[in-house]
Design a binder for these strands. Sequence first.
DNA 1: AACCGTGAAAACCAAAAGAGTTTCCGATTA
DNA 2: TAATCGGAAACTCTTTTGGTTTTCACGGTT
Lengths: 215, 215
Amino acid sequence: MINDTVIRDRILRTATEQFYSHGFSKVTVDEIASKIGISKKTIYKFYSSKEDLIRAVTDTVIAETETGFRDIVEDIHLDFVEKLRKMMTFVGIHLSRLSKYLIEDLERNTPHVWSKISEYRTKNIYQHFGSLIREGRKKGIFRNDIDEQLVLMIYANAIENIINPNILSQLPVTANQVYETIIKVIFEGLLTDEARTRYLPKELLRNNNRQQDEE
Amino acid sequence: MINDTVIRDRILRTATEQFYSHGFSKVTVDEIASKIGISKKTIYKFYSSKEDLIRAVTDTVIAETETGFRDIVEDIHLDFVEKLRKMMTFVGIHLSRLSKYLIEDLERNTPHVWSKISEYRTKNIYQHFGSLIREGRKKGIFRNDIDEQLVLMIYANAIENIINPNILSQLPVTANQVYETIIKVIFEGLLTDEARTRYLPKELLRNNNRQQDEE
DNA sequence: AACCGTGAAAACCAAAAGAGTTTCCGATTA
DNA sequence: TAATCGGAAACTCTTTTGGTTTTCACGGTT
């Protein structure tokens, strides 16, 4: 019984890793079985088809993402700015795991799985983010004249095009530095004038001075 | 005429990029054609088969690597240590481009292509590196009691397991920092006791103090 | 010792996919 | 106008893949 759970989870983990690395259609069920050291028959004992497997992978990834969001949102020890930073980092990690290559593969071969992920992004990720921005507006930190969906799209586009492992290995910066830079740029673009005087000197003084010199 | 050369080179570049990213067998000729915006027929106008294409890719990569080596070896402005550093960085870049995934794919699907690359590694890369180490021995910089093939194997193993784009994106360091660290460790391990007093205080003083504190 | 259940490995089957080839058609060139 | 070229699609043959079944060996139980 317990052993069945271990095997099932192992299949799920390996499939997730392989699909996310190489694309759904480019990874065979034989390869997944071989990587784990089990037979194809055992995989089909737990998952009725390759499609069933990618559905399980998708459901699991979505559930884990949602758990991560809840942890951030419900963490009462975080101040607002830190919560936003964590949220953006978390969103960035989620987005960067879905390479263009994988998205194209999913769209082409399992459009319903892709539409579920796409819907999850729209309905949940974007809304979690949007509600944080609206909270910032209430606190007078964020401007009213910038659409939060647009902001997230700018952010998502930056992440998707830069936090690509192959590009990262060529850059003279770490992944974290890239996240921080992108988040900082977005964050500062969101601030009201008043909030700028409150937040920028306190948190970002060194870098801000350098930027004013350039302007 | 000129246009034919451009198209042929474009095919070669795209195939190289795709094969190296995703593996030989997992990239279809259709996909390469589609990425370039040409028809499959045009690809077969220049390359008689998919195998012919991977052979051309291999020959080109080997030729470019060999050119890089020659540039380093024949650069008379480099002192010995700098030449070694450049050589190791160059070797590292070459090694890191060949992921385990691609190697397995080549071994399985085009064993003769893999054996050509493997032979190139053995006959050329390892010998370029080895001759540098032997030169260091003549200069009294490197120890006599360490086998240069073994050193390169240690280096190659470190590179292959760390300079993987997916791992790099999780590390709090840049690719360059990883190279530098690996190269430094190998380099210091190669030095004679006498050369340590010559080279370490001059080039590596800050980090060396920190290491002595830990010992 | 005999039996049973299990799972890896291999074989199997039907459909799909891919390499390589040919055809069709429109655009361009001489 | 005729010829050429190349994209797109269709075609052919082979291979591969998803899913299923069979074989066999092993371990556990009676």
